[in-house]
């Protein structure tokens, strides 16, 4: 069993319009010191998954099933109070928008001190020293002074660093970063990613990076899980996902990866259409209304949900198309287009 083991996780929200199947049978694992990238378009269920691991849906309307094992403890069935004790200490989260994710009325230092003192019985002075140390560690200049600043007095990049310091305050063994760089410009984005990599090495924590941009996790992740409509459609080693992807949706993601040398509007293989509704998920393969190859699966695309089947290279793909056909499509049609420029 891995350090983190998620088995057939389902998180459904009953609403007036129907059940929103935000996460629908997700399975993955992660070891200490390893990084997993979860990639997918907006609304594919990435955030719901990460909040689910932290137990933040407990007590809400969500219907949760499956198992989440963290270091030998099962969290789905555990009482809310037990999971709360792990939150912030054993597992911590870095959120997407650091400005709205930090309380506007408290200083950055206060918020780090608070996080530290929930799980450590230390005096305010000791916690404050710890907060200053942390701010220095994440690269904030003059941490002794900035500790008393409010979030709105920080720049976007500094805020994200402060957010990281807060998440790291209790040396978590599992760190989930939900789109940690989306709100930042490209240079700052690279700095933050470097920082996260260094810190992860230092703390030897398990890291999950959630993003809609494959580029973000290209250098950081050991494994990549591609999500579509609440389900995993492709899952494997990072190199496999980049050099031998087999799912048409992953091809689309690769084709729409923003790159420094390309205009953001200029996409090689854009994915047509929009993400599916999670209330009325298309029957069969959820991707079929947008998939250019839907007609190659003898009508099964719209009737039968494809299995998440292993390939001989050891990664998992959810697609009805015969393997030989996928391989040749990738080699002959997709890869050459992606490699132009």
């Amino acid at each position: 069993m891995s350090f983190l083991d998620v088995k057939d996780l389902k998180i459904h929200f009953p609403t007036d319009d129907g059940v929103v199947k935000s996460v629908d049978g997700l399975t993955f694992g992660l070891e200490r010191g390893q990084t997993l990238g979860i990639v997918g378009e907006s609304g594919s269920g990435k955030s719901v998954t990460s909040l689910g691991i932290l137990g933040l849906h407990k007590g809400g309307r969500a219907k949760i099933s499956g198992e989440i094992w963290l270091d030998g403890e099962e969290l789905v069935s555990a009482p809310a109070e037990q999971v709360r004790g792990l939150r912030g200490k054993k597992m911590a989260m870095i959120f997407q928008d650091p400005l709205s994710s930090m309380h506007p009325y408290y200083t950055v230092g206060h918020q780090i001190i608070e996080a530290y003192r929930i799980h450590n019985a230390v005096s305010k002075q000791v916690a404050r020293k710890h907060a200053v140390d942390l701010l220095g560690r994440v690269g904030i200049p003059e941490p002794g002074k900035r500790v008393d600043s409010y979030p709105h007095e920080f720049s976007g990049g500094m805020r994200q660093r402060a957010m990281i310091a807060m998440a790291l305050s209790c040396d978590p063994e599992l760190l989930i970063a939900d789109e940690p760089t989306t709100a930042l410009d490209v240079t700052v984005q690279a700095q933050i990613l470097d920082l996260m990599r260094d810190l992860q090495r230092e703390f030897n924590s398990a890291l999950i990076i959630i993003t809609h941009d494959l580029g973000v996790v290209a250098e950081l992740a050991d494994d990549i899980l591609v999500m579509y409509g609440g389900k995993c459609v492709e899952y494997g080693k990072t190199d496999e996902i980049f050099y031998n992807p087999e799912h048409p949706y992953t091809w689309g993601l690769l084709g729409s990866m923003p790159r420094l040398d390309r205009e953001p509007t200029e996409r090689l293989l854009p994915i047509k259409g929009s993400p599916p509704s999670l209330i009325n998920v298309p029957p069969g393969c959820a991707f079929h209304p947008r998939c250019p190859y839907a007609d190659r699966t003898e009508g099964r695309a719209s009737t039968e949900v494809p299995d998440l089947a292993p390939t001989e290279r050891g990664h998992l793909v959810r697609c009805h198309m015969p393997r030989t056909e996928r391989r040749s499509l990738w080699e002959n049609e997709i890869k050459p287009v992606l490699e132009t420029q």
Binding site: L86, R87, F95, S101, H103, E114, I118, M166
Partner: peptide, 11 residues
């Protein structure tokens, strides 16, 4: 979002 953050800290 900041209330969610507060919960995520284990408060």
């Amino acid at each position: 979002d900041y209330v969610r953050t507060a919960r995520a800290k284990g408060l």
